[in-house]
Design a protein around this nucleic acid. Structure first.
Length: 549
RNA sequence: GCGCCUAUAGCUCAGUGGAUAGAGCACUGGCCUCCGGAGCCAGGAGCGCAGGUUCGAGUCCUGCUAGGCGCGCCA
């Protein structure tokens, strides 16, 4: 909206120059319009003359002058100037302030968003933590990221579905069942040794107690050991699932579906169907008694086993089936948000997608790096199996939802993050999120006090601080699109910080109340517009925008 | 050994190939008779190392160093 305005002006000027023969015809190279840090470089800066210099074979500044001579007057810009090596710097005029306020008002709470239905159908899978223990703080980052990404994509006009893959089949769940069994029998004549691959957290004992309370010891009578462990595992997974949903809900994350590997894939025959599909595609072959998939033909390092010697499908086979099923449900794009420990998996998964005949670029993976948990500078080990982790619920209790989400979303997903728990708790009051929320509350308070007495005159918004706010507001749609495109919610967090900062600066320097009515009303509308965009930004991050704090 | 991510201010991190590299926290000094001082203004200090591409590199390429993670007929 903002950048494209300047871009349009420049392109028109260039078209004229081409038309009258001053410039050669043909496609001109692309250029950037950026928001400089230093206002001396204008509100906006374009580098086209620098880029064009080679094509046109003349000095950048001369190109700039030629462009400048053809640029039509525009109400958004007071003037443009040539600067530096050949930048075109543009300075905003009150027309831009006016346009900014009107645009935000017209958009209601959807300013900058793209109407739904214009985009793709996207399935975002995230968290997908093993169902063998309560969610811990490591999942918090992935949950914040995946949810914010989903919100962003929705804002960008896509239809988005959030899914959590529950990996509830296989050895680890069995180990969980064995551990529950251990606790049930502890202290009784049938007491058994703690399972070698058992889970050490206290929560398993809690599950055993709950089993006794809800089902009673009789529930296991007559079951053979395998059936007993299966029953206990099922109970445990269910209970952990309830904890999981409770924690995620408290965190503001709601999944459209928890997709069970056991029920939705294996029991329903999806794995066999997917394998049959792969057979049809002719990408399977037998070797050493196992069934292999020719993933190496699609860019993987080597071929992978899908059916083991013992005829059981591998975890990989289930995952192939899962993704195949996602496409079959009508999604045109899949985004997997995974931990860095899964990256060894990407090659074969991409190959699998390609092998089922789907366009490779429709399957995206975002690796969210670990957070390294520290407590007073000491590294905290985090292994579910060792029972040494910080549960999500406790973490949120200590740090707070808004504070936690904002902290995670301020960072790019591929940046490893050191998170000192002691520090986070101590400093949660200093969290940048409050800076943004404070700006919003301040505006809400202001609006409670300044009566709406007409439209005022938006063209009076000509102070430097007002023009900066106009620039920031006008850039929001582009910022949003850019963040969605780059799968980068952290751009929105930084945008919100900057907008809040620019509002605080404006507010400290200028008064809304007690100035002439036409100006007062214009400033009221400007403040309201800022408040509205702050709220939208925070909303995209899943952070609340309180009117009072 | 191979692969992925990372290295920017004292700390935690931003930075679509552009100008004098930014923010928050921490530290120092100023700022309300008045719309919320959880705020504003000012100050110091930084791109791991070496090459290359480019008019221009924190950004792209190569090598090196350091840290994290991964390389099963486990899940």
């Amino acid at each position: 909206m903002l950048r494209s305005r300047l871009r349009g002006l420049l392109e028109e000027a260039a078209a004229q120059l081409q038309e009258d023969g001053s410039w050669p015809n043909g496609t001109l190279p692309d250029f950037t319009v950026e928001i400089p840090d230093d206002l001396a470089h204008g509100h906006l800066a374009a580098n086209w003359p620098l880029v064009l210099a080679k094509t046109l074979r003349r000095a950048p500044r001369q190109v700039a002058d030629e462009l400048l001579g053809r640029i039509a007057p525009d109400p958004w810009f007071s003037h443009l100037e040539v600067a530096g090596a050949g930048f075109l710097n543009a300075f905003l005029a009150p027309g831009a302030s006016s346009a900014a306020v009107l645009a935000v008002e017209a958009g209601q709470d959807d300013y900058g968003k793209v109407a739904p239905g214009s985009g793709e159908r996207i399935l975002v899978e995230f968290v997908s933590a093993n169902p063998t223990g309560p969610l811990n703080v490591v999942s918090a980052r992935a949950a914040a990221y995946g949810d914010a990404l989903a919100r962003l994509l929705q804002a960008a006009g896509h239809e988005v579905w959030r899914e959590f893959y529950v990996n509830d089949a296989g050895a680890q769940v069995e180990a969980l069942g064995k551990t529950v069994s251990y606790w049930l029998k502890k202290g009784s004549p049938e007491e058994i040794a703690f399972p070698e691959d058992g889970y050490k957290g206290d929560y398993v004992e809690e599950i055993a107690q709950a089993f006794l309370a809800e089902r009673g010891a009789k529930a296991l009578v007559g079951l053979d050991p395998t059936a007993e462990i299966r029953a206990l595992a099922e109970f445990a997974v269910e209970m952990i699932g309830r904890w999981r949903e409770r924690d995620l809900l408290a965190y503001g994350v709601r999944f459209d579906r928890y997709f069970s590997e056991q029920k939705d894939l294996r029991a329903s025959g999806r794995v066999e169907e997917a394998l049959a599909e792969l057979e049809r595609q002719g990408v399977l072959y037998s070797q050493d008694g196992a069934r292999f998939m020719r993933t190496s033909a699609f860019g993987d390092d080597k071929d992978r086993v899908v059916v083991k010697k013992d005829k059981a499908p591998t975890y990989f086979a289930a995952d192939v089936a899962y993704h195949w099923d996602k496409y079959r449900r009508g999604f045109s794009r899949l985004i997997d948000v995974l931990g860095p420990d899964h990256h060894g998996y990407l090659g074969r998964m991409r190959a699998a997608v390609a092998a089922t005949g789907k366009p490779a670029e429709s399957f995206e993976v975002v690796l969210v790096q670990w957070i390294r948990l520290l407590r007073d500078g000491e590294l905290v080990a985090m292994s579910k199996r060792a029972g040494d982790f910080v549960p999500l619920g406790d973490f949120l209790q200590e740090v707070g939802v808004d504070s936690a989400r904002f902290t995670f979303l301020l960072r790019s997903p591929d940046s490893p993050l050191d998170f000192d728990l002691a520090l986070a708790v101590r400093e949660s009051q200093d969290n940048p999120v409050y800076y943004v929320q404070y700006a919003h509350a301040r505006i809400a308070s202001l609006l409670r006090q300044v009566a709406d007495q007409g439209a005022g005159d938006l063209m009076l918004l000509s102070e430097p601080e007002e023009l900066l706010l106009a620039r920031r507001l006008l850039s929001f749609p582009e910022e949003l699109a850019h963040a969605a495109e780059g799968r980068a919610p952290h751009h929105i967090a930084h945008y919100a910080m900057t907008l809040a900062q620019e509002f605080h600066a404006f507010y400290n320097r200028h008064r809304v109340l007690g100035v002439e009515p036409a100006l007062s009303q214009a400033r009221r509308r400007l403040a309201a517009a800022v408040g509205s965009v702050l709220k939208e930004s925070l909303g995209l991050l899943g952070v609340s925008a309180p009117d009072r704090m």
